[in-house]
């Protein structure tokens, strides 16, 4: 890529991938080096496909993918030395021990850090000489992460790293991930259903639904835009429909408004309409996530309705 930006760990531009029952459409995202991106979306939204494209495991139909300066999938072999990938369904050899796996990965990757691996065994509360088949789900996930972390990859691609872990194990994993970020050259992209983890850890947040990116931006400015406004207005008065308003719920004189691009002007406009504002509240990422998906789906289905309506008119004309 000519205009590859050296400060970026990941750059994706207009990436598309077609499957018989699913389309990944125009995925564009950037992850600056030294930062961590939370990738969220409902089941089947395209998170895993996107991650697999970044890993070179799936080839995009069109669009540009650059990972750590390597164009993908052409230079995937070079890229993979520096990428650590972990997913829920990591396959380990069930008749071998954790130690066997550690020796195996060590023999392939010169960056393997034996001391760090030892520390991780302790911190993850694992037993080196235990065979994989005797491990619980949580232990297996942690073993997979250990094998990846001890190689010290520059970019960590994690597909649901904390899913199915108990709270203690989740903390152990999160602690290790945060330690990775002490190094300004290392970066993480992780997908998760757990909006709480994403809200706490991420510098960047990317929302994906039905193969499309709904939004991708810096967490602080993103959270800052969303507000819930509780107000009181006499029931015979109308509330104006302002741009940036996603939802309006009224019951008697009480109204709750959800705004996705809140500004003080918005509150002022409501006041000028005779509303008395009780509170303007911040929203959690979980609440934003649900609003975002619902409003984006409502918008798309209204587009669909418009096009079907159009076709029907044409049909009538013909």
């Amino acid at each position: 890529m000519k205009d590859y930006d050296n400060s970026m760990a990941i750059q994706m531009r207009n990436v598309c991938k077609h499957y018989p029952h699913f389309d990944l459409q125009n995925i564009s995202l950037e992850l600056p080096k030294g930062s961590i991106m939370g990738f969220i979306g409902p089941n089947g939204a395209g998170k895993s496909t996107t991650i697999r494209i970044l890993m070179g495991l799936v080839q995009q139909d069109s669009g540009i993918v650059n990972v750590l300066g390597n164009q993908m999938p052409t230079h995937q072999i070079a890229a993979k030395w520096d990428i650590g990938f972990a997913s829920e369904d990591m396959r380990l050899y069930k008749n071998e021990t954790i130690q066997w796996h550690m020796d195996y990965i060590k023999s392939i990757y010169p960056t393997w850090d034996t001391n760090y691996a030892k520390q991780l065994v302790k911190r993850f509360d694992l037993t080196r000489h235990q065979k994989v088949k005797g491990l619980s789900h949580g232990q297996r996930v942690k073993a997979g992460l250990l094998l990846m972390l001890a190689r010290k990859p520059k970019l960590l691609l994690l597909d649901e790293p904390t899913t199915g872990l108990d709270p203690v194990a989740r903390h152990e994993v999160i602690n290790e991930l945060m330690d990775v970020l002490l190094d300004e050259e290392r970066s993480i992209l992780f997908s998760s259903h757990n909006t709480q983890d994403v809200e706490q850890l991420s510098d960047e947040i990317t929302f994906i639904d039905k193969g499309r990116i709904i939004s991708s931006e810096n967490k602080e400015s993103y959270l800052e835009k969303w507000r819930r406004i509780r107000l009181e207005i006499s029931s015979d008065k109308q509330l104006p429909s302002l741009t940036g308003m996603v939802e309006q719920r009224r019951s008697g004189t009480q109204a709750i408004i959800t705004a996705k691009s809140f500004s003080e002007n918005m509150a002022e406009t409501y006041r000028n309409c005779g509303a008395h504002i009780h509170s303007i509240e911040n929203m959690t990422l979980e609440e934003i996530f649900v609003s975002e998906v619902q409003s984006s789906r409502a918008f798309n289905s209204s587009l669909d309705a418009a096009t079907t309506g159009d076709n029907m008119n044409k049909g009538a004309a013909a």
């Binding site: 930062s35 961590i36 999160i174 945060m178 330690d179 970020l181 002490l182 706490q200 850890l201 602080e220």
Partner: peptide, 15 residues
């Protein structure tokens, strides 16, 4: 960065 890592929150939040 140090503060963020020790608090287990993102760098951008501490920034």
């Amino acid at each position: 960065r140090e503060f963020a890592v020790s608090l287990r929150v993102s760098v951008i939040t501490v920034k």
